[in-house]
Nucleic acid binder design. Sequence first.
DNA 1: TACTATTAAATTGTGTGAAATTTAATTTGG
DNA 2: CCAAATTAAATTTCACACAATTTAATAGTA
Lengths: 139, 139
Amino acid sequence: MDQLKLHNQVCFPVYTLAKEIVNRYRPFLQDLDLTYPQYLVMLVLWEKDGQTVSQIGEKLNLDSGTLTPLLKRLEQKKIIARSRSEKDERTVIISLTASGESLKDKAQNVPSQLVGSLSISVDELQKLRRIIDQILSNI
Amino acid sequence: MDQLKLHNQVCFPVYTLAKEIVNRYRPFLQDLDLTYPQYLVMLVLWEKDGQTVSQIGEKLNLDSGTLTPLLKRLEQKKIIARSRSEKDERTVIISLTASGESLKDKAQNVPSQLVGSLSISVDELQKLRRIIDQILSNI
DNA sequence: TACTATTAAATTGTGTGAAATTTAATTTGG
DNA sequence: CCAAATTAAATTTCACACAATTTAATAGTA
């Protein structure tokens, strides 16, 4: 068996599925005027408001090279605010604006819409999560 | 349970794993002077030389907006050649150069290196593939 | 206390991805 | 046969990702 044949690759399906998921999210997220990475940042902030750029980056595995411009776009949309910490002027604290906070209500049904559009059972999804979490925990 | 909590998301792990896989490939692919998407294109061509841009795009789920500049970079590296079809001047045929063909030898051990670096059993990887293929087939 | 090292963001440069438009070539229907 | 529709790439625009460097602020140390 040829190791270099595309259909024998294990990683290509993961790569394809990830792109497909982002595409599936797109129509739902367009209603919120968010891209998928922007949505992930908002999830992090909805869970705990007032985090630094690095804290957000740790949770999403993104560095400042990605986050700085993304956060500036969220700032332009007026759903977050960026301010320097008083204790340490190096750190930038990201906080939700009122409209960023209220966007959470509109986002409530996004997960169920998405899962519905994938046409797969919750059980299979759990299995998928378990295996991926196991791989990621080894990294 | 809060549907909007990051750790309850099913898609975030897939997104994270895909990025992590690309990062894992990077050091091995740097030896070949290829990025991961460029490597995927080469896999397609090593399997069958002389395909059109659309044929490559169908196999990798990429459109000309992504492929055209990518293919031009591979052309600059002199591992592929681009030529218009004589039958239909609209289509561009991508073919391997001698050095593109011989790059396949250097690529032979990439898959095993990659799987080794993921520290997961082949069995688990098969399970992962099966679930993902099932999801993708429903799309 | 200066000097150095470290840290946090920002910046720069390269390379995807996707949507929308454009250009050129080919097909098709009247 | 010829105008209209279709098709294939290319182009344009926007938004990630990541590596590497830079800038500014803080911490540590002789």
